[in-house]
């Protein structure tokens, strides 16, 4: 029964990695930019909710602070693209990477100044509750993470398959020029994709802060989520979730069955193996570049 508990907590972690990775992939697909600040946006979203919800700060009801925080992060994502990233259009990919790393540093600083550097956790309605089935004790927060991720995946699928905006985003990510000719406002779509990624980051952050404590350096989790995105196949939305789940599952099992130190190493070892043997990830979407 030990394995089942590891499985659930691994899945819950993996869902959070997957959600952050989804943000990476959304932005990468739409704008060909890699947003290294995604982890820090997750952290900021968590702190925003925490600042609105927790008694020590503003003490708003949980169901008010969550939508406000998600909307706030979406607005931040939109503004980041509209004000900064759009200017980088046409510069090398690595320049954009460095810019987003710099932005991440700034976000981390802002969060530290406002909310301090102590780890804090979100006072959600389900915090600390357990679910007992027979002899197994499962954290309700972990179950909630898995359910929310499943729901979110369904909503995202509907969004991309059924709505005009979702279709426009798909079109933009497949061929910018053709999308532009078809009357799709490509620049605004880019900014909206960033907004969507911001909202995803906020949701991931809320789930993360419900499950454990958060501090300004939690954004570094983004690196692991990034590894997850690459393992799954950078540029594939299901791949991002799959990669997240793989990383999330490998960590606790490696710690349990190999050695404690290996839980940190395994995600990156898998990443290197994937990069060497299947550089485009498990669900590959990238082919050889044409000249």
């Amino acid at each position: 029964m030990d394995a089942l508990q590891l499985l659930v907590s691994g899945l819950a972690n993996g869902c959070i990695y997957g959600l952050i990775a989804l943000g990476f992939v959304l932005i990468y697909k739409a704008t060909e930019a890699v947003n290294f600040a995604q982890g820090d946006m997750m952290m900021l979203g968590a702190f925003l909710t925490l600042g609105l919800n927790n008694e020590a700060w503003m003490g708003l009801p949980f169901w008010v602070s969550v939508p406000v925080a998600i909307a706030g992060m979406a607005a931040l994502g939109y503004l980041l693209d509209a004000l900064l990233l759009r200017r980088m259009f046409g510069q090398s990919q690595i320049a954009v990477v460095i810019l987003t790393i710099a932005l991440g540093f700034i976000l981390r600083f802002v969060a530290g100044v406002i909310w301090g550097h102590e780890p804090q956790s979100l006072e959600s309605p389900i915090a600390g509750m357990d679910l007992r089935i027979g002899g197994i004790v499962l954290g309700l927060d972990e179950i909630a993470v898995i359910i929310v991720t499943l729901l979110l995946t369904g909503v995202l699928w509907l969004f991309f398959a059924r709505t005009r905006l979702g279709l426009a985003m798909q079109a933009t990510s497949q061929n910018q020029l053709a999308a532009y000719y078809m009357g799709i406002p490509v620049k605004r779509i880019h900014s909206l994709t960033w907004a969507l990624a911001g909202a995803m980051a906020a949701i991931a952050g809320i789930l993360f802060a419900t499950k454990g404590a958060i501090d300004p350096n939690s954004g570094l989790l983004g690196i692991k989520a990034f590894a997850a995105a690459v393992i799954g196949g950078f540029g594939s939305l299901p791949g991002a979730l799959l990669g997240g789940l793989i990383v999330g599952l490998v960590e606790p099992f490696a710690a349990r069955y190999i050695a404690a130190g290996f839980s940190q190493i395994m995600p990156y070892l898998i990443l290197l193996l994937i990069l060497v043997f299947r550089p485009d990830g498990i669900l590959a979407q990238v082919r050889q570049k044409k000249v």
Binding site: L84, R87, M88, Q91, A95, I98, L99, I101, A102, L103, G104, F105, I106, R108, F109, V110
Partner: peptide, 13 residues
């Protein structure tokens, strides 16, 4: 770190 990040962002832009 934040000042450094800001300087860097300004340079890149």
């Amino acid at each position: 770190t934040a000042v450094f990040g800001a300087i860097l962002a300004a340079f890149l832009l």
